[in-house]
Nucleic acid binder design. Structure first.
Lengths: 259, 259
DNA sequence: CGGAAAATTGAGTACTCTCAACCAGCGTGG
DNA sequence: CCACGCTGGTTGAGAGTACTCAATTTTCCG
């Protein structure tokens, strides 16, 4: 809408279908009109291709943009004093990786690509503006943030109070379910972008112990995992092993009265 | 603004000075006008006194209200399959404990009081409405949520990649700094509402090990801790011991352009 | 085909846990 | 006023999950 015909300089870099994954995900919790989608698509996104291991966000840096993952995976992490790394979340295609930059002026963690990725960045101010104009978009953005926060809470529980096997199974369940929901992959086989070292850093374990624990999950017939592909062989068993309950993902939120 | 003069039925239960702590905290990141404070104070808050251990939020329950802690402490937690508990955050006077209810329809965790508390609850819809009308209030609310999320991230790191001594020291640093900032307590002695069992559940340790670790911190002259009072005897040493860096608390956020 | 990254295996270690008993503070009641 | 009982804190000893170090094999990719 509104004059998008005459000024295609920046956003003609963007194929509208690129937002398919995002919109599909948002549809689960926020009904968006055609007008809202178009307004969103008309934002001054800048598209980029990044190699594996590239930094998307760096701790301590001032923030000004929000970045949407179009293709590929990314992970959020922090380093502790002795150089160890804790991965805080994994991000899949169709997710914003740093919506907190809407209001927080300084990055408090790092985000790196797990694989070659395509991203689309937009100034945080532009996102704030469009949110102010379209309440449904505002709602979708904030819901994403709240669900992220809910996942962080579950991760605190996961690394805080579960043993190695349960932790890893839980993480696999979460990733499988999120990939399913986003429609990027179909059950029961998923792209799995983490090395065992990274899986260890996500679960607070050592790589060696992670390796042995994965073998145990394989031996018990719960999963197959090799060459970046995860197959869930027995969902119920994996779910049990991971003490997994999907409530925290809020995949089906009830709409509170818009207001 | 609009007729708040004629309907004081509910909010005359609230003494405006009760929001002092909240407003003082919000002042750090969101400048609020007199009008905005008054509009906020005029919301239909309901005030209540709760005993120790009372549930403020219960996992699985539908949500409809947001609750502000006026006095006393509360903790957020989840239970895992084998009955173990992980505490996810501690909340101090002047903080909202469940702003995520603005949009999430079902509680994904529990919140319980740590001590006798006074709270003020307000319908989530009323908070959403006032946020839509007053951007500065909206901003303050969302910043609180984003800072909460940042704290969750740091907790993932804390329980995931730090040893017992560092974990506990880190948590003590965080609490001391937050209490300082909120003005509820003055350095170097703070009210400390957690039992060792709860401290263990917050750090992912066992009570026994927590006890021994605390003794080590005491022996080394970093802290004094007894009968619900924490004294930081050597801030620099405690900070070092806890691998603590306060950036994630975002106590001084730069204002992004209001929009 | 070669080199680097990732995965796997082995053996010894240690941080943290478990179990269990004991102590201390404190509010209640006889 | 002191006994009682409960909650919270402390101590001891033994066990185990997960860690460390180091070597080896496999996979990936140019």
């Amino acid at each position: 809408m509104r004059r998008c015909n005459d000024a295609p300089k920046r956003h003609n870099l963007i194929d509208p279908s690129l937002f398919t994954l995002l919109f599909r995900r948002w549809d689960r919790h926020s009904a968006l009109s055609k007008e809202e989608r178009e307004a969103f698509s008309a934002l001054p996104f800048v598209r980029k291709t990044l190699p594996k291991d590239a930094y998307l966000v760096e701790e301590g840096r001032p923030t000004s943009e929000c970045t949407l993952l179009l293709q590929g995976f990314a992970y959020r992490h922090k380093l502790v004093h002795d150089g160890a790394r804790q991965i805080i979340s994994i991000h899949i295609p169709g997710e914003f990786i740093d919506l907190q930059h809407l209001m927080l002026a300084t990055a408090d963690h790092n985000v790196q690509t797990l694989s070659k990725t395509e991203i689309a960045s937009v100034p945080a101010a532009a996102l704030r503006d469009i949110g102010a104009r379209y309440p449904a978009l505002q709602r979708a953005i904030w819901l994403d943030l709240l669900i992220d926060a809910s996942i962080f809470r579950e991760w605190v529980v996961n690394v805080g109070r579960r043993d190695a096997r349960t932790r890893i199974a839980h993480l696999l369940c979460e990733l499988a379910l999120r990939l399913d929901a986003s429609g990027t992959d179909t059950s029961p086989t998923y792209e799995f972008p983490l090395t065992q070292d990274q899986l260890a850093d996500a679960t607070g374990l050592t790589p060696v112990h992670t390796n042995r624990t994965l073998q145990s999950l394989r031996k018990d017939g719960l999963i197959a995992l090799s060459s970046s592909r995860l197959t869930v062989l027995d969902w119920d068993a994996l779910r049990d092993a991971g003490d997994f309950s999907e409530r925290y993902l809020h995949h089906a939120v009830r709409h509170p009265g818009r207001s």
